[in-house]
């Protein structure tokens, strides 16, 4: 690691001030992605601003027709929360499958979405549920949040405080893990909400994306049967030593069908 100064603000305002005052600052959430990156000297910052002492951005709350999860809520808390399980069991599954138990004890939701790893799980929930990302400056629609490979709509100095997930009528997340990293080789989040059906895919492309043609089919008939002849084109999907784009395309279609079945779609 390159040297940096460490800060542990007690409030979001204090953190925002620090971000504004330092030459090359970086927010530290759970650190599960950032610290390995720093250890390998793949990035360099003058200051790390640790959000772990800010209680106001932790916790899980049911707020009417939505579930609001604080940015610094750890994966284990989401995976074991009764509130989450009652409202959006797909999130229970998703959070319970991130990394490994030790990573889940430390990693946070906000860190995951701000990092926008193309194979991370949480971005598929934000997009798949049409969630709203609440920052210290504004609210960003899930559809507008993820911009590309490790790229989000967040501006420099902007801090994710929480994500507001609408409670869906039905939803499920199915992950097909990479055998080495155990990240998503492909992960599919499907949800039937009051606003319609949404399908979000992670792991398969440079950035989480929606599968609108599948959404259209499922809007008419939310069942695996509706997808019987559904296929995904490999164009533009990731290809690496673990899988070709062709196999990922196949996996997206299969995981989608399995997700719809898991969500309790009509059969």
């Amino acid at each position: 690691m390159y040297a940096f100064d460490y800060h542990q603000p007690k409030s979001v305002d204090e953190a925002a001030q620090m971000l504004g005052a330092k030459p090359e600052p970086k927010l530290l959430a759970g650190g599960m992605s950032l610290l390995p990156t720093l250890k390998l000297r793949l990035a360099q910052y003058t200051d790390l601003v640790d959000l772990s002492a800010i209680d106001s951005i932790k916790g899980i709350e049911r707020d009417g027709d939505a579930l609001v999860i604080g940015a610094m809520t750890r994966h284990v808390e989401v995976a074991t929360s009764d509130t989450v399980k009652r409202a959006i069991p797909a999130l229970t599954t998703l959070a319970g499958g991130i990394g490994d138990p030790l990573v889940r004890n430390r990693g946070t939701m906000g860190g995951s979405i701000a990092n926008a790893d193309p194979a991370a799980d949480y971005p598929s929930a934000v997009l798949g549920l049409g969630a709203t990302v609440i920052t210290d400056k504004r609210q960003i629609a899930g559809d507008d949040f993820f911009k590309g490979l490790f790229e989000t709509a967040l501006e420099p100095g902007e801090i994710v405080m929480a994500v507001r997930y609408p409670v869906p009528l039905q939803a499920a997340y199915i992950k097909y893990p990479n055998p080495a990293s155990r990240f998503a080789l492909v992960g599919v989040f499907v949800a039937r909400t009051a606003a319609g059906v949404r399908v979000a895919v992670t792991g398969a492309g440079p950035c989480v994306f929606r599968l609108t043609d599948a959404e259209a089919l499922l809007a008419k008939n939310f069942s695996a049967a509706a997808l019987e002849n559904f296929t995904v084109k490999p164009d533009g999907l990731n290809a690496d030593i673990h899988a070709t784009a062709e196999y990922r395309a196949h996996a997206v279609a299969v995981m989608l069908k399995r997700a719809v079945a898991a969500a309790g779609g009509n059969t």
């Binding site: 055998p179 080495a180 990293s181 990240f183 690496d240 030593i241 673990h242």
Partner: peptide, 11 residues
């Protein structure tokens, strides 16, 4: 080398 860590070398 494309399998340079446990992220890519499947243990």
């Amino acid at each position: 080398l494309m399998s340079g860590s446990f992220m890519d070398y499947a243990m």
